[in-house]
Write a protein that binds this DNA or RNA. Structure first.
Lengths: 332, 332
DNA sequence: GCACGGATTTACATCGGTGTACTACATCGG
DNA sequence: CCGATGTAGTACACCGATGTAAATCCGTGC
């Protein structure tokens, strides 16, 4: 910057002012400075600016893994939303590992990020105190608990109810669930499973025994494994509600391999509406939590916090939409 | 850090030395310092360190978009590989847009990254000079050209030939291609299409007319559209080679919707071996370019360059593997 | 011709670490 | 007992930008 200043015949501070859009600069000066910047190919050193200003222009996004299309699509949306505010996103993958989630939380990249979009899977109410970080943060995903922190939530309960009602309305009564986490009382799995049982109750349908299967890491493979396991038990069922789309797609695979017809014998529904759900065979009925909206809202909240907003913490529930497709409706 | 130093009764530089693992430190001193760090909850300010040292410990990864599972899985692999070297990855999405690819290249985040893993789609030989950046860089993907830069390449030619040979060996002769970019002489599409025609020639098969369809952004939707278009022409074909997996999956969808049986009537093959290819119906025959290996190799090259290695530029071709599945083989 | 207020520009200290150079003490071989 | 060598720790300048406050311009009004 010194060099640019010399080249333009002004002080370094003036160069700084030009770069930051400070208003009181004579047009002639601005042009001189810009010319010098161009001539020397000067690029500002962000580390130096950050050191002085305390801001980096980078926000973190902590998600389990990008291999999961839901998070990949969410990341794309977050990057776009952040870009609208001139922010860059630094993605941190936690592998859904509790340790690494805590690390991401307590050591936010050594002041390298101004704020954090945080999508934890393994945290529970016992960790609520850890969320009182000094770096602004917005939680994405489920309502784990009422914390001292902003929260943009998927409407898990309403979304789940909508999809389960849809299955019931199709006449299905023995609806299997895959992807539960038996020993967890909080988290996505527990919330969606809870909403499922509630919906059955609304319809006066008993929760069928032996039709809830756990599903590991919510990958396609765990969905296929869970379904194979369920088929092996010999239990009857006429529908499957998979707690997310990748599980559902794995389950569809296993059902097809077993000669089960979808939806004639068994209807399948998922949750997330990943792009793939519109192109699988059969296409997948699922709940769309509107990633774009979630990302945009979350970034806006975060920007406010980073600007020093100190108001009461928000809990925003994003809208959802049920997409009914072949896997529950039959071919066209 | 000053505070920590005071708390521990040592100089700031000693604290710095402890944090950086400088060897000549008495155990007692180290313990004192660590205790002080812990007591004060001190976190180092990376910006300050970076300013002085010129290194950030962050490498950039520029890819078109994470919604494309290939790049999402590549990003996961890159993050893991970088982690092994104590590096963090900052992902930049370019949307396969030439302008944004150039921006990512010429303004590498204002010194915020020490190096760049760069996976361009829209660049050609005319841009070769731009690759002479001062920040170390490793190119991922195709051999666009012999540039002044390290390069980890997918073995597009051999991979394509393997999959096309496989189709030919199954007795297919009228093999359609979707995803070409008619006016591009370089880039993935051109390379794979070229290898396709070469393979046909090897088998003495003429390149069929009217069976090569362009495919927009290589999304599922463009694959479905391209296939619908092809079906509408009424041309006969007994196989489809999609230039990547998402195109193939979209095409499968369109074929199924049209009542075409796979692979009985038409065999389908793709390229990338995304996770989804093992779980689609039917499962998809495809070429696996081994993302993990590519990411690991690329990061290692980059680390060497960042360490100041000045040797001749490497061009490494990653191994590939053909996975034959139901879409070309028939149900088990 | 001069005081005055807004427009422009600048000097200087400072953000928080680290490289360099230097001091101090202990150990060791001759 | 001395200089050489190795281990521990420190002082200080400096990386490159920006906040602050002060200086310099310049057109007005009287």
């Amino acid at each position: 910057m010194r060099d640019v200043a010399r080249e333009a015949g002004v002080s370094p501070k003036t160069v700084s002012n030009v770069m930051n859009g400070y208003p009181y600069i004579r047009e002639a000066t601005r042009v001189k400075v810009l010319a010098a910047i161009d001539a020397l190919g000067y690029r500002m050193n962000f580390s130096a600016r950050n050191l002085k200003s305390g801001r980096t222009g980078v926000i973190g996004l902590a998600v389990p893994e990008l291999s999961n299309p839901y998070f990949a699509e969410l990341a794309d949306a977050a990057i776009a939303a952040a870009g609208e505010h001139g922010l860059t996103v630094m993605i941190e993958t936690t592998g859904a590992d509790r340790e690494r989630e805590l690390t991401a939380l307590t050591r936010p990249r050594g002041h390298l990020v101004d704020g954090l979009l945080y999508s934890p899977l393994g945290l529970g109410p016992e960790d609520v105190d850890l969320l009182r970080t000094e770096t602004p943060m917005v939680l994405l995903g489920e309502r784990i608990f009422h914390g001292p922190v902003d929260h943009v939530m998927i409407d898990n309960v309403a979304g789940t109810k909508a999809v389960v009602r849809h299955l019931l309305d199709q006449g299905r009564r023995r609806i299997a669930v895959i992807g539960i986490r038996p020993r967890e009382g909080v988290g996505t799995a527990a919330i969606r499973y809870g909403a499922y049982t509630e919906t059955l109750a609304e319809y006066g349908v008993e929760v069928p025994e032996g039709l809830a299967v756990s599903g590991g890491k919510w990958h396609r493979s765990s969905g296929a494994d869970a379904m194979a396991e369920l088929l092996a038990t010999g239990e009857r069922f006429d529908a499957v509600f998979a707690l997310n789309d990748t599980l559902a797609l794995g389950a569809i695979r296993a059902l097809a391999a077993h000669g089960v017809r979808i939806p004639d014998d068994v209807a399948v529904a998922g949750f997330d509406n990943i792009d793939e759900a519109s192109y699988s065979s059969p296409t997948l009925t699922t709940v769309d939590p509107d990633r774009v909206q979630i990302a945009r809202t979350a970034v806006e909240l975060l920007v406010q916090r980073m600007a020093g907003d100190d108001s009461e913490h928000h809990e925003i529930v994003a809208p959802y939409e049920l997409h009914t497709r072949e896997s529950t409706l039959g071919a066209n």
